[in-house]
Write a protein that binds this DNA or RNA. Structure first.
Lengths: 165, 165
DNA sequence: TCAAATTGCGCAATTC
DNA sequence: GGAATTGCGCAATTTG
């Protein structure tokens, strides 16, 4: 009780000469490297008359489901192509995402470095102010003490805000 | 476009009757809701005698290649499992990567905000500094001799160097 | 309703 | 020899 075992002959050598001899009037499709194997479902997922329910099966798709059909073959080809395309895209996207991660990581480092710098700068300035304030408090009349605000300032010479990117 | 993957029931339940009638002595394998289709290679990919070289074909692997073989079936099952696993991992990884992107983006925003804050703070301090310098210049009495030093540094309003690499 | 796009799955070749 | 990857085709669904 075999369904319908059709013998398919396909030779695939390394040269890529994959000849699929399946149905009599196969379209001239031959997508590049075509794999050398055939896959056949072999079983019908749902039996139309199986359940107790009566289904209005006015037209089963089995019509084009005929493996020997030309239409079937064409649909398969198209789908195979679509699948390929979709998968390519998927992979591309994954790669892009990975790259995005790398870029973001780099940028993060840059930003952190900048923060560090700014923090330091700020710290220095604050210290200067504090010192100056103390000087004023201790000795309001005199200026130019060792810790004067104007003294060390050249220590932190740097660049200020800069719109990155 | 929704990208979230939804893990649903495997199709072909409730239709239910996926009968796999393939090999006589199928092992008791039944990997979770077995798919309802069979795929049969049906053809030998490479003909041993394809190349010019003579190959000692003492034992072709076809031995275990016998579809009816128990070993073959077991190998297939194992591989199917491995494939499933591998693909699951792959997807998981992709998801993780995507999430990483999101996290990094968030962190980036945070960092930028911080930079903005620091910059502003710095700006304020510098302004104060400038003001002080002007005070000293306009009113030397309050300050000591070396008030000029202050002037030295407050040039930085206009930065000349950029730190970006 | 149909066609493209996605998705799950199995097979086989290859890699490790 | 066996697990892990990878490319590919099939079929069921989803999407437009």
């Amino acid at each position: 009780m075999n369904k319908q075992l059709q013998q398919k002959i396909s030779s695939t050598d390394q040269n890529g000469v994959s000849v699929i001899q399946n149905q009599p009037h196969n379209s001239a499709f031959n997508p590049a490297g075509a794999a050398g194997l055939q896959q056949v479902p072999q079983l019908v997922p749902v039996s139309p008359g199986g359940g107790g329910k009566a289904k209005p099966p006015s037209k089963m798709k089995k019509n084009s489901m005929d493996k020997d059909s030309d239409e079937y073959r064409q649909r398969r080809e198209r789908n195979n192509l679509a699948v390929k395309k979709s998968r390519m895209r998927s992979k591309q996207k994954a790669q892009d995402t990975q790259q995005r991660v790398n870029e973001l990581k780099e940028e993060n480092e840059r930003l952190e470095a900048k923060i560090k710098l700014l923090s330091k700068e700020l710290s220095v300035l604050k210290d200067l102010f504090l010192e100056h304030a103390h000087n004023l408090a201790d000795n309001p009349a005199s200026g130019g003490g060792p810790g004067d605000i104007c003294n060390n300032n050249n220590n932190n010479n740097n660049n200020s805000s800069n719109g990155s990117q």
